[in-house]
């Protein structure tokens, strides 16, 4: 399988407070990769490094098998971007965006852009600052798609959207992915979205990747083992990824649900959600 993104030994530090690294990550073509982590974990920094918005300290990034430092312009022709709270000035109209973009991307497709506007019910003469938050987000997504990119890099594209609009947006992403050359890197806090559409989950915490698993493996094999505090001592340390002790019971994150079911028959083994996983991995102990 071709790699859409290949990151090797990437590091980036802002100050003594935060550093990213060393990140090694392969993102295959034709998949949706969910990037999760709490605020300030390094998701946006990683995305900014990918897009050369900030300069990496060390390491290499290849997109479509090409080095991002050497082939920046060529690569960016094929990337669509939605960044959290960053867009064209809001005094511009929807029509202005088309005017600007058709002279910015070789493959900009005005017809496709206006088709999205029609589908979304966005008036092309409206200024961006007159659009609702949901409409604005849809405009940003349409702008990222209208030059037929192969890779979408999306930072919180569904934040602040109501469930109906969110589902519409997720459907657009799934449609985009019908072409097997297309890839999406999606950073989000709304982990339930990823349970529906992501092929792979990458969990980043304090600037480091602490989990890189396929969604199927995660949902099938990871589980929460619930037991009484007394029983916790009987659990083999090798089976514990992390745990959280409550007042009367204990929640243990395990990565082999079937094995845990056989081994610890007295315990309850619950299916896991990505949100549970995040909370246990960040707040839990090891």
């Amino acid at each position: 399988m071709n790699k859409a993104i290949e990151i090797k030994n990437l590091t980036k530090s802002y100050d003594e407070q935060f550093s990213l690294g060393e990140i090694n990550l392969d993102i295959p073509s034709g998949q949706i990769i969910g990037l999760i982590g709490e605020n300030g974990a390094g998701k946006t920094t990683l995305i900014k490094c990918l897009l050369n918005i900030i300069k990496k300290d060390t390491g290499s990034i290849k997109i479509f098998d090409k080095d991002t430092d050497k082939f920046e312009t060529l690569i960016k022709e094929n990337i669509g971007v939605v960044l959290d709270d960053m867009f064209l000035p809001e005094v511009l109209t929807v029509r202005d965006i088309d005017t600007i973009m058709k002279d910015s991307y070789k493959a900009w497709d005005s017809n496709l852009f206006y088709k999205y506007m029609k589908d979304f019910g966005i008036d092309k003469n409206k200024k961006i600052n007159k659009l609702s938050k949901g409409m604005r987000k849809k405009l940003e997504i349409a702008t990222s798609l209208a030059h037929h990119p192969k890779l979408l890099i999306l930072d919180e594209p569904t934040s602040g959207l109501d469930p109906v609009v969110r589902n519409e947006v997720l459907d657009i992403f799934l449609k985009f992915l019908e072409d097997e050359e297309h890839t999406i890197l999606l950073s989000t806090h709304i982990t339930s979205d990823l349970e529906h559409i992501a092929d792979k989950i990458v969990f980043i915490d304090k600037g480091k990747i602490i989990l890189d698993e396929t969604r199927d493996n995660l949902m099938d094999n990871y589980a929460i083992l619930k037991c009484e505090l007394e029983y916790f001592k009987k659990i083999d340390e090798k089976d514990i990824i992390s745990y959280k002790k409550n007042k009367y019971d204990c929640e243990v994150l395990v990565n082999d649900a079937k094995k845990a079911k056989k081994k610890y028959k007295e315990c309850i083994i619950d299916k896991i959600t990505i949100e549970d996983l995040m909370v246990l991995m960040i707040k839990g102990e090891k």
Binding site: K48, L51, N52, I53, E72, T73, L74, I75, K76, E77, I79, V81, L83, M86, F87, L88, S104, Y105, K106
Partner: peptide, 8 residues
């Protein structure tokens, strides 16, 4: 930041 992602 946004226009830095343009191919120019």
């Amino acid at each position: 930041a946004y226009v830095t992602t343009f191919p120019c």
